[in-house]
């Protein structure tokens, strides 16, 4: 009994450390990546820029904490925590490899989505609590965006759950072991007998787009649309409050990439069935994160109605149709 609690504490500490380190260095990766894409070096002077995240961290932590007059103090303070905490909590159930998993849950998928919906809430509280018009507008945008994109995302996940028959992330990943032909994204899946899934690439695409939108990344970063809403929901946040939002964003990206990897790309499995392990998992998620960064620095921002139209008029019908066909195919084969 004691051991379980001890394990859980260790897991949470490791999750926090992993999330924080990831967030810090992903910011650097983003800045260097942006630099590379934009034909400039990016932060590179102190040890190839490796000391940049600590410097930013020190600076943000030692900055004056400001609460604007008229802001709702409680909401203002709690919002950044709410942005960061669920992301860290989600790490608990993500299996990094066959053995490295803090707590394998039967409803892991469900839990991650439950925590993910907190993200929208944090943005709403931040925008509302800071009593800033730009903030409120950004908050309303972000909430409508989160709601619209959770629907197709969840519908897509149902196809996976139907195929695998489980909501346990560890099991979902284990079922895809062996090689890339066993992965869920692959149209012809052979892990436990032959399965024709021609629609899985579509599911993957929808899920990928939705995770971009859920993490408020460009081209869907309407919550912090810099050219319109100054800095969006975190306009009034300085110092570490802003830092937490920043870290929360990157932690969410890691969660999103992990989820895509587990659901579609075979988790910790090697593409050719050799030496499965945590390194494959990390390789996959960082490749996905790189693609996120790449997309961010390539595309302009969509409009709010373009964004909602994309979800309600295109993604949701397609994902529903996809679900229906997949169910039919499962019945046939």
């Amino acid at each position: 009994m004691d051991l379980t609690i001890f394990n859980a504490v260790i897991a949470v500490v490791i999750a926090i450390a992993f999330a924080a380190a990831n967030a810090a260095y992903l910011v650097l990766a983003e800045r260097r990546g942006a630099g590379r894409i934009q034909r400039r070096p990016g932060p590179n002077v102190n040890l190839f820029g490796l000391l940049q995240p600590p410097a930013d961290g020190i600076k943000l932590m030692t900055k004056q904490l400001m609460i604007p007059g008229g802001a709702d103090k409680a909401l203002f303070m709690v919002a950044p925590v709410l942005a960061m905490a669920p992301a860290i909590m989600s790490f608990v159930t993500i299996p990094f490899s066959n053995t490295i998993v803090a707590h394998s849950m039967n409803v892991g998928v469900l839990m991650i989505f439950a925590f993910a919906s907190f993200g929208g809430m944090a943005i709403l509280l931040a925008g509302w609590g800071s009593r800033n018009k730009y903030g409120v507008m950004a908050a309303v945008r972000a909430v409508s965006q989160n709601i619209s994109y959770e629907v197709p995302m969840l519908i897509t996940v149902i196809t996976i759950v139907m195929m695998t028959g489980t909501m346990n992330l560890h099991e979902i990943a284990s079922l895809q072991s062996g090689g890339f032909w066993n992965w869920n994204i692959f149209p012809v899946s052979m892990s436990d007998g032959f399965m024709l899934q021609p629609l899985m690439p579509i599911s993957f695409l929808i899920f990928f787009i939705c995770s971009l939108a859920e993490t408020n990344r460009a081209p869907f970063d309407l919550g912090e649309a810099e050219s319109e809403l100054v800095a969006g929901f975190h306009t009034e946040y300085g110092s570490m409050g802003f830092g937490l939002f920043f870290m929360g964003e990157y932690a969410n990206i890691v969660i999103g990439a992990s989820l895509i990897t587990i659901l579609f790309l075979g988790g910790w499995g090697c593409p050719f069935g050799l030496y499965p392990g945590v390194w494959w998992f990390l390789l996959k998620i960082y490749l996905l994160i790189f693609s996120f960064i790449w997309i961010r620095w390539t595309f302009p921002r969509t409009t709010i109605y373009g964004l909602l139209n994309l979800s309600w008029k295109i993604l949701i019908p397609i994902s529903l149709f996809n679900l229906l066909l997949t169910a039919g195919l499962l019945k046939v084969f």
């Binding site: 942006a34 894409i37 934009q38 034909r39 400039r40 460009a218 081209p219 970063d221 649309a225 810099e226 050219s227 620095w297 390539t298 595309f299 302009p300 921002r301």
Partner: peptide
């Protein structure tokens, strides 16, 4: 202009 629309990279190319 492209930066106004949220795309940051073309500014860098254009300025170069």
């Amino acid at each position: 202009f492209v930066m106004d629309l949220g795309g940051f990279t073309p500014l860098m190319y254009a300025i170069e």
